[in-house]
Design a protein around this nucleic acid. Sequence first.
DNA 1: ATCATTTCTTGACATTTATCAAGAAAAAAA
DNA 2: TTTTTTTCTTGATAAATGTCAAGAAATGAT
Lengths: 197, 197
Amino acid sequence: MSGIYNDIYTSFHQFVSTMVKFPEDAWVKFKKNATIKNIQKKEHLVKEGEICKSLGFFNEGYFRFYYFNKNADEITLNFHFAPGFITSYTSFISGHPSRIFVQAMENTQILSINHTALYQLMDLHPQLMKLGKFMADKIAIDAEEHLFNLLNSTAEERYANLLQTHPAYVRHIPLRHIASYLGVSPETLSRIRRKIK
Amino acid sequence: MSGIYNDIYTSFHQFVSTMVKFPEDAWVKFKKNATIKNIQKKEHLVKEGEICKSLGFFNEGYFRFYYFNKNADEITLNFHFAPGFITSYTSFISGHPSRIFVQAMENTQILSINHTALYQLMDLHPQLMKLGKFMADKIAIDAEEHLFNLLNSTAEERYANLLQTHPAYVRHIPLRHIASYLGVSPETLSRIRRKIK
DNA sequence: ATCATTTCTTGACATTTATCAAGAAAAAAA
DNA sequence: TTTTTTTCTTGATAAATGTCAAGAAATGAT
């Protein structure tokens, strides 16, 4: 498989090129260590309690991040839309069990590299370490964004926002997932929807 | 000032040594670019709307992160206790205006380096880039921790936890700051405290 | 030490949203 | 298509917490 450019390799290359200059030798080594995996709709890339040992790049579909709270309610934390990296980041970098489930919402494929290989490559290639830092930075920025959304926006605003940014996707997401993502019960979301219409 | 080891240099060196091997030449250059700043209690390291252009290290006291919501209520997001890095991270890395105020809660000093100098040093020294990645990673981990605390713990549990981990500090923090940090009104916190006693 | 200001506590009340239950609508399976 | 299952909506009620107001306590200033 390695050495053959196909859609996902190309889009990965484009994706990272906006951030760093990927030297040719690093790129070749990266491809030797990366594998393409096909992921079915509803399949879990990571489950709660598992140590996430790989980092993926995906260029179609979207993933849902969720966990179960004390009352065993399924709480959706976030959705990640293509293209982008996909992993349970804190588990991946810390080696601790993941607190979250990462689930594909549509059939997709990912370009996957394992932790050991990636860290070896990062130590050899400063540009890859820089890419790793970019990734971490983006996660920190997203986390702040997420936190401010949670604290500052009403459920109604956040629902309207999700509808506006990803209308096509939202139509397919069960409302109970959206409700927990917004931090309200399905009944309350139902009432919000009635009010908006 | 540079070249002279004093308390904060030493503790900074110790602090980063647990993460990366800081090469001597990088260390010398770092010191040339770093400055020590004395910070008064209640002074702001960063204000909302300002672009945060420096990264600091502090080894005493603690800082409060807060912002004003739509109703102009002051909302405390977090406390950062010594030792550690201190900055409005997303502003620092993105160059966008900070959404938060970073305020010293006690007199302290910081070892400060500006953005331009740090990024030059990181590009020259892979170990410094690695340190930068560690820092970003820690922020991502803290953000996940924070999010789970907000979503999963009751205000009562989070208050008990803060009391347990930082009893000395908490005694000095005005309760209204703690209340907003816990996501409840001061009145509700007051009732929680009565219940606990 | 006294006064002034800020912070904290308490009660009464209003508001919001969760919970429960039951039926309607939609989706999946046969 | 028909049946079965799941998801969504709606109303009634309960629980939790915010808001307002007023007094107590603590803090800071003179």
